[in-house]
Design a protein around this nucleic acid. Structure first.
Lengths: 305, 305
DNA sequence: AGAGGTTACGGGCAGCGTAAGGATC
DNA sequence: GATCCTTACGCTGCCCGTAACCTCT
């Protein structure tokens, strides 16, 4: 019995599937089978019922799960405590919403590589709704997303807030004074994808005007910015991702009578034990934000993508 | 990192020696070295200071020890709980005083092989004083001995009691009535080794008579019996080891005015974690005694040695 | 010199991936 | 038939023991 085998066992218990575990642990499916067989041989007990679509724990398997999770928990605590940071290795799957990717993600990644040079990061940029789904299906280990993940077994903590500013190309004539919602509704709006919180906020903002406003949405922030710069519409975005465009004058800020709610981002990750490194990364993320005590623009003006 | 490596680490910490650990774990000394080197490489930390006569833990090593012992503890609990009994394997070093070896040790061994067929037993028959020493130096895992082991980190529980009967060869003329201590002191006495509790008890029994009694002692119970049968002296032994001799009439019981204290045996083993199987064997030993609710003679009249 | 740990090296076996073979829905 | 796990098999790499070497007391 070794720790790798116990980890395999725990992941099968979590995912209900040998195949998914193989993918999760970057191994072939027969390898996963072999590990469990060896564990079952050693304990002379069947651990999973493989008939049926999902691998389901037997009674003995449930007993083992308790111990295995405790051992994995201790093991990862051990690594955090006694290992020198560069000895902590492995792959962490990071799910981030694009706004994060545009702002302080580069700094976070820098911090992570600095603190844990041997950790491999896998980035998955997606909208928050999908990130939450990927988190619960354990396709990613930790997410930085809009809103909170209100699932049992998941830790979710708000950690930064962006207020949105309305911007438009100078080619669109707009007054210095705040414009009314009715006026806003007559201009095409480019924003985050449908099924995202900002989209819903804008939708509910202009719905009362009863105007059939054109709303373009894109899952790519750089596309939103590009379209706005090209004068295809106006958009409401965090000021932090627009530093270059506002400085060079290709975009101009304008004001609207009604205000949009801020975007509140949280970090979320599985609360189940054995994910000490993930928790450490979450702490690092929080520290990265709080050390400046406020949100800053990325150190470089260049976008990530 | 695997459990075997952690176990190796813990044993070096306990014994202060790579070499002793190699012996303890039935491996070569370079193998032990290699395991620790690999652990140190993985954690990128030095765990032992090898200069000097003893291997001594570094600060990081002490941190690791805490986790390693917890993990080993969980691992052995896991084996006890979820493994089918015949899957529990390994070697247990059993230290027993000869009286135990003569009486219910065969039944205990039978019970152990029955409950845990894959466990290897290593027997070490010695006098109780030496057993206590071997226990603290971890040469044996569990001991069944006279008296208690009053050491920190050791569990010690009394579990059976033998009263001693005086026996002599019929060739020695002795009255039916109890004889006085003065009379007893005139006969050579054959008993347990010096530095043993029974020897001390007999010594203090006859010292008041001020008679220069001949006391023969032997570390071999069968020799004591043989000498007594041959009429070289009388002896005080548990009735349970004399069933054959008393039945065949080669020994006869006689009474003495003063009485000797009973021999109280206890089981003792290390209280430090990671020795779950040892504890299980201790429980089994207690059960073996208490199920009959009294001490019995061995099922077979034949002696072990 | 002797006790104790490290280095060097060759052999065996455990564990891996690929490919083919059931079983269940 | 699709999905999922098991079996078969060849290969790689790790881990072990032996032997020689180094380093303190």
């Amino acid at each position: 019995m070794n720790i790798k085998t116990l980890e395999t066992f725990v992941w099968i218990a979590r995912l209900g599937s040998f195949r998914a575990t193989a993918k999760r642990l970057y191994a072939s499916q027969p390898t996963i089978s072999a590990r469990i067989v060896s564990l079952e041989d050693e304990l002379r007990t069947e651990l999973f019922d493989r008939t049926g679509r999902k691998a389901v724990l037997t009674a003995k398997g449930r007993q083992l799960l308790v111990y295995a999770e405790k051992i994995l928990q201790l093991h990862s605590e051990l690594l955090e405590t006694v290992a020198r940071p560069d000895a902590i290795h492995g792959t962490i799957r990071l799910g981030v919403s694009e706004t994060i990717a545009y702002t302080w993600l580069p700094r976070l990644i820098e911090k992570i590589s600095e603190a844990y040079p041997a950790i491999n990061l896998e980035l998955d940029v997606d909208i928050s709704l999908n990130l939450a789904g990927k988190l619960t299906s354990r396709e990613i280990d930790i997410a930085f997303l809009i809103g909170e993940v209100n699932q049992p077994d998941f830790v979710s903590r708000p950690f930064c807030r962006y207020s949105l500013v309305w911007v438009a190309s100078p080619s669109i004539a707009l007054p210095e004074q705040p414009i009314s919602l009715a006026d806003l509704a007559r201009i095409p709006i480019i924003t985050y994808p449908r099924r995202s919180e900002p989209y819903a906020n804008i939708r509910s903002l202009i719905t009362p005007t009863n105007h059939p406003t054109q709303i373009h949405s894109s899952s790519s922030l750089s596309t939103i910015i590009r379209m706005t710069v090209d004068g295809l519409g106006v958009s409401a975005l965090p000021r932090e991702i627009l530093t270059r465009e506002l400085a060079s004058g290709v975009l101009r800020e304008f004001r609207v009578e009604a205000s949009l709610p801020d975007l509140v981002f949280s970090t979320a990750y599985s609360a189940s034990p054995g994910a000490g490194v993930v928790r450490a990364v979450a702490e690092l993320a929080l520290a990265t934000v709080t050390e400046d005590n406020r949100i800053q623009a990325p150190t470089t003006g260049d976008h990530l993508y």
